[in-house]
């Protein structure tokens, strides 16, 4: 068990390092395709009015002429121990974790990211709760009553659900429930949980349900398929033959075995969602990480893009690490291997 955890931990750290390298590589190379030179990058820090000499000097101070590897090393160092930026006019301290300063606003990236995390986290957490409960229970009932009217209707709805783009359902839901019926607040409404929990939930209700509908569909299909498979196994018959109550057979023996693939999918989905529910946040104009990333990309703000991508990837890796550890709880066979 301990070796299993240690192995997963090392794997997760290695994954993060690889991702940081690839991310840096891509966002270092791609802007150059688009015509970014060291001078062009530096001029974004000093403003357009600066003379070419000043720009050149700043580019040198900020290390834009150094090889990629050196720049990557400096980037990593900034994250772990912080960095100092020397603009010539003065030295700026950027405490760890330092993702650099925005090209546009000149503000450090990390505090911006921290500011936006609660929005995305609230969105993902609430939606995940709804979709797991709804998706898994619909899947179980469908599998137990295979071929029934409930099964056919819910599976038809689930198929429709996976075929609908979130920006379409989101817009329709806003048109109907916010602007038409006035039941829910319009897009862009956000209240922090610590300020007013009721208002927080009320504002997020529509995004939660829309997002959950999209995901619940996939979970219902997966749960149904898994349950149909496990409920046909011999040990289910054995459990019934022992005289166990049907509820116990279904939940303790059937569902538990069908849960593993659902857990895997959940780990990936949840991680990706926290990393940036780009489409949902754009549709509902929520000030979260997803919206931040799309703004950063539109502005070609390299430090912001790097920061948000790495944080997003970090969430995926951490979520799948947690899932790997949960495996050991759900599936005893993992502990032995």
């Amino acid at each position: 068990m301990v070796t299993y955890i240690i192995r997963r931990l090392i794997g997760a750290i290695a994954m993060l390092i690889v991702i940081s390298m690839v991310t840096f590589g891509i966002f270092y190379v791609v802007p150059q395709w688009a015509g970014a030179t060291p001078e062009a990058l530096a001029s974004r820090y000093v403003g357009r009015a600066a003379t070419p000499e000043t720009v050149h000097l700043v580019a040198e101070r900020l290390g834009f002429y150094d090889p990629v590897v050196v720049q990557y090393g400096r980037f990593l160092k900034g994250i772990f121990v912080g960095a100092e930026y020397d603009y010539g006019a003065g030295v700026e301290q950027c405490p760890a974790p330092c993702f650099g300063y925005s090209f546009i606003s000149g503000q450090p990236v990390w505090p911006d990211l921290v500011d936006r995390m609660p929005v995305t986290f609230s969105l993902a957490l609430g939606a995940a709760l709804i979709w797991v409960v709804a998706g898994v229970s619909v899947g179980v009932i469908s599998a137990l009553r295979r071929g029934s009217l409930f099964d056919r209707i819910s599976m038809g709805t689930a198929l429709a659900g996976v075929s609908l783009p979130i920006f379409f359902t989101g817009m329709i839901s806003l048109v109907v429930f916010s602007y038409g019926l006035g039941w829910t607040p319009p897009g862009g409404a956000w209240t922090d949980f610590t300020v007013n929990p009721a208002q927080w939930a009320y504002n997020l209700l529509l995004p939660w349900i829309t997002l959950a509908f999209l995901f619940a569909a996939g979970y219902a299909r997966l749960t149904r398929a898994g349950m149909l498979e496990t409920m046909g196994e011999d040990y289910i018959r054995t459990a019934r033959a022992k005289g166990l109550r049907e509820n116990r057979v279904v939940v303790k023996h059937g569902l538990r075995a069908a849960l593993t693939p659902i857990l895997t999918l959940f780990g990936i989905d949840f991680g990706l969602l926290i990393g940036g529910a780009v489409l949902t946040e754009t549709t509902y104009t929520l000030p979260g990480l997803g919206q931040y990333s799309i703004l950063a990309i539109r502005n070609q703000d390299l430090p912001q893009v790097m920061g948000v991508t790495l944080v997003a990837a970090g969430f995926v890796v951490v979520a799948s690490l947690i899932v790997d550890l949960l495996y050991a709880v759900v599936d005893p066979r993992v502990r032995l291997s």
């Binding site: 690889v18 991702i19 690839v22 891509i26 791609v30 940036g276 990309i297 991508t309 997003a312 799948s320």
Partner: peptide, 24 residues
Amino acid sequence: MDVFLAFPLLIFAIALAGVIPDKA
């Protein structure tokens, strides 16, 4: 494959698609 699955692909794709030059 693991690395690819852990990537926030949409963000990457948006970033790449966002910097496509006009001519190439």
